[in-house]
Nucleic acid binder design. Structure first.
Length: 514
RNA sequence: CGGGGUGUAGCGCAGUCCGGUUAGCGCACCUGUUUUGGGAACAGGGGGCCGCAGGUUCGAAUCCUGCUACCCCGACCA
């Protein structure tokens, strides 16, 4: 493959240059450009911004402090939004009895191929002294599955919690880790173990459950757009892409910089499938037994991957101010002095009093240039430089990460200026991503255009589809593109399926996806 | 699960084809000096069970056999 050769070439070139002490091309923190190799760029960002690392365990990552701080901010905001919409948190077991999983037929079919299974509960010293082995006498009566998702254990529990319509709705969320034994993993985007939240709600009526599904979809979309500055399309999945056990799967779909789509969150209307599988009934006002209606919804650490691929650039991570762990960093130039410390501390106090997350870089070993590059790599939205010159002029140097512009600002009133700037950066990131998505959403009306757009500029392709799974499969085979969603509030228009020519009454969004 | 790689210092690699002093290089780390407004320079220094287990040999990072781990690309998925 040409791609491999290119990579090989780069490796060799790197080797030669590394031997040359005058070369600055392969400094420790240099990252691969997006143009050169997008997926290597992604890996470089994750590792060099210290977000995460591969671990000793296949497919499982170590989330490092920088990455975890980001997750904490995302989690905290989502948690607030869940609570504002009436939900409470609870926690259910990590393990699920094997028999539970098979109670809902489609559900088990969807997850069976990627389950980690617990078969024993004890180790013993190996007879030959070579270490420890599984004690065969400690075999479990029934194997346990490490949860790939918790519908089954939760619905088994709900049976005992729900008796009357007065117990409904039951609006519960849990923050947890889950395990899906994926064939191939990528940091944040798809790991064998990942962190997420899963909401599981129970309702007396279908309408109420559907409304809940849509409410949570809106919460996700609001979070993605207002906090992550990541524009998303709200839509509904086709039968092929539906969650195992759901009647309808709603989703938010985002577009990454390489033109591939990423499912950023899902909200499922589960109908009465799980209520029937786990026999969860309630007495209605007329004292008749009815099955409960269900929803589930989740977002995961994958959002961090989405964030990276939406905003970051060849200099490193770019973070939206609202979720950046550190929003402002102060760099003493060229190094800390009592005068600069005093000015910085005063500045920090003022910024913190206005709720800004600010840090002062007191490292007296590294030089300013190094720090500039490092803070840019880490995606800190605003950098303030203070040196003797600035102190004398009563100014600070303000550098923004998104545009890399620098300007001198009077210290007087700087807090308000920075509050405005953070808002502006947040908005600029969203606008930039939205413009990219608009530019990379293409309407096509025949299959040749369909293919050439996908192979060329990529992105979302808006096209007519005859509504059959067969056609969807065929298109996937031919182009690797899938239907990302049928957008909500989709305009109705008569057209012909881009593949079969059969009649269609609305366009759907296709894309290659992560 | 198929295809392709790679395991040598914390990280990135050279050395392996063709066996031979004490296993090298860059970055990082430690000490010191000079520096410091966009990734500092010099000098000195520390750090290795060459993935694991066997074998061949006077001698193995290098050759042979077996094992194992991880990465990348596909099919599967959030």
């Amino acid at each position: 493959m040409a791609f491999r050769q290119k990579l090989f070439f780069i490796k060799n070139q790197g080797r030669k240059l590394a031997e040359n002490p005058t070369s600055h091309l392969f400094m420790a923190k240099e990252i691969t450009s997006r143009e050169e190799n997008y997926s290597q760029w992604y890996i470089d960002i994750v590792q060099k911004a210290n977000l995460a690392d591969n671990s000793a365990v296949r497919g499982c990552m170590v989330i490092k402090p920088n990455g975890y701080a980001l997750w904490e901010n995302m989690r905290d905001q989502l948690d607030r939004m869940f609570k504002e919409t009436g939900h409470v948190n609870a926690y259910f077991p990590l393990f699920i009895p094997k028999s539970f999983l098979s109670k809902e037929a489609q559900h088990v079919e969807g997850f069976a191929k990627e389950c980690a299974v617990i078969t024993h509960h004890r180790l013993m010293n190996a007879p030959d002294g070579s270490g420890v082995v599984v004690d065969p006498s400690a075999k479990l009566e029934e194997e346990l599955i490490v949860r790939p998702t918790s519908e089954t254990i939760i619905w088994d529990t709900y049976r005992t919690w729900i008796n009357s319509y007065r117990d409904l709705p039951l609006l519960i969320n849990q923050w947890a880790n889950v395990v899906r034994w994926e064939m191939r993993t990528r940091l944040f985007l798809r790991t064998a173990e990942f962190l997420w939240q899963e909401g599981h709600t129970a309702h007396a009526t279908k309408d109420e459950a559907v409304a809940e599904t849509r409410t949570m979809l809106d919460v996700y979309a609001t979070f993605a757009e207002e906090w992550m500055a990541m524009p998303v399309v709200k839509g509904v999945k086709t039968a092929n892409e539906r969650f195992a056990g759901a009647e309808d799967t709603y989703c938010i779909e985002a577009l990454m910089q390489d033109g591939k789509a990423l499912q950023a969150g899902t909200s499922h209307f589960l109908g009465q499938n799980f209520a029937k599988a786990f026999d969860v009934k309630f007495s209605n006002k007329e004292n008749q037994q009815e099955y409960v209606w269900a929803t589930s919804w989740g977002v995961s650490t994958r959002l961090i991957g989405a964030l990276i691929m939406t905003h970051s650039d060849d200099d490193g991570l770019v973070l939206p101010p609202k979720i950046a762990p550190t929003q402002v960093v102060i760099v003493p130039i060229p190094k800390p002095t009592p005068e600069i410390d005093e000015a910085a501390n005063k500045l920090m106090k003022e910024l913190r009093s206005k709720g800004i997350r600010v840090k002062y870089d007191t490292d007296d070993q590294k030089r300013p240039g190094f720090k500039f590059a490092e803070h840019e790599m880490n995606g800190i939205p605003v950098r303030l430089g203070i040196g003797a010159r600035d102190l004398a002029e009563g100014k600070v140097e303000v550098a923004r990460r998104d545009t890399k512009e620098k300007a001198n600002q009077p210290v007087e009133g700087i807090a308000d200026y920075i509050i405005g700037l953070l808002d502006e950066i947040q908005q600029n990131l969203f606008d930039r991503a939205a413009a990219f998505r608009t530019e990379h959403t293409t309407k096509v009306d025949n299959f040749d255009d369909f293919k050439s757009v996908l192979e060329g500029k990529g992105g979302f392709v808006s096209a007519h589809w005859d509504g059959t799974s067969e056609t969807e499969e065929k298109i996937k085979e031919l182009t690797k593109a899938t239907i990302r969603c049928i957008p909500l509030n989709n305009p109705q228009e008569d057209g012909k399926c881009v593949l079969t020519g059969n009649p269609s009454k609305e366009r759907v969004l296709f894309a290659k996806a992560y």
